Amino acid sequence: MIIPENLQFQLPYEVGSFQVQPDGKISLTSLADLLQEIAWKHADSADFGRNLQESNQMWVLARLEINLLEFPKWGQQIQLFTGGRGADKLFAFREFLILDHNDEVLARAMSSWLLLNSESKRILKPESVLPSELFDPTKKPDWQPGKISISGDLIATETVQARFSDLDLNYHVNNTSYIRWVENLLFDQGVRPDSLAINYLSECVAGDRISIRLYRSESWFSVEGKVGDKLVFTAKV
């Protein structure tokens, strides 16, 4: 299959029973898991993935936007595509596309990433490790995930504790765990989002208690998560 839209990497996939909600449609959390997986596979294939650990470097997802046109269903064959979309200052951008077996668009997503020194947590220039043919630092996408501000009326709160099963390889809460918390809080209000934007602002570790607050405005819902007074993520659906 020809990779569309000047993307650079593809992954065929069949949606599993463990990835869907009771209606048989994939959850946003499971979809985000797939985006994370193809991002790592692409990075590893071009030597800017897990090999960076040898030089004390790590990628951190800073912002993500997902727009669903149609929810993939249990057993459905889908095609995932991803590719670099340039850099802007300290952000490197990665786009995602999901198609069905008829090449119809099911979902699109855009993400922005930071490259950090894993010991000092100092932010590094992404072009220092990215191949220019994949992430041209002279180009930047028109679609860039934006900064999320919280507004509206407070309608729900919840406190969750970060557990071992929430952690990633760096012993930080995995980015998809935040999405699961947001998705569950929305489902409690009878809301199933078909779009999501999230900003990851500070790391969480096992044992942290995250206070999550859901706000409703006329056109959207927004969510914030705090550990004490520290804002760790914001989201908008």
Results as ranks from 00 to 15, higher is better:
P137A: 10
G190W: 00
L196K: 01
G152M: 02
V173Y: 00
A206I: 14
N174A: 10
I150Y: 06
S202R: 08
D153H: 10
E183Y: 02
R163W: 00
A197P: 02
R122S: 09
G146W: 03
E203Y: 05
L167R: 09
G152P: 02
K139V: 12
V173L: 06
P141R: 09
H172V: 11
D166V: 04
T157A: 04
T176F: 03
N174Y: 09
Y200K: 10
L130T: 08
K147E: 13
Y171V: 10
G146A: 13
S177G: 04
G146F: 00
D136M: 09
L196M: 10
Q189H: 09
K147W: 11
P126F: 08
I210A: 02
E127N: 15
K140G: 00
A197D: 07
W143M: 15
P145S: 13
P141K: 10
V129E: 12
L169I: 12
P193H: 00
S132F: 07
H172K: 14
Y178V: 00
D166L: 06
W181F: 15
E127G: 08
A206G: 04
R209A: 14
E133D: 15
D153A: 10
P141Y: 11
P126L: 05
S195Y: 08
F135L: 14
G190F: 04
T176S: 12
N170H: 15
I150N: 07
I150T: 11
P141T: 08
Y171D: 15
W181S: 01
R209T: 14
I210H: 03
V191D: 01
I179E: 03
V129N: 10
D166F: 05
Y200A: 04
L186F: 03
D166E: 09
S151R: 12
S151N: 12
R209G: 01
R163S: 07
E158M: 05
V129A: 14
R180E: 08
L169A: 14
D168R: 12
R180Y: 04
D142Q: 13
P131G: 12
P126E: 09
G190T: 00
E158W: 06
P141M: 08
G152Q: 11
Y200N: 09
S128K: 14
I148T: 12
T159F: 03
L196N: 01
L124C: 08
V205Y: 11
Q144C: 08
F164I: 02
T157H: 07
V205H: 15
R163Q: 15
Q161A: 09
R209I: 08
L185E: 07
S128C: 06
V173G: 02
R122K: 15
V205R: 15
V160F: 13
D153S: 11
E158C: 04
L167Y: 05
T138P: 00
N174D: 13
D153T: 11
K139M: 11
P137C: 06
I150K: 09
S128W: 09
K139W: 10
V191H: 00
S128P: 07
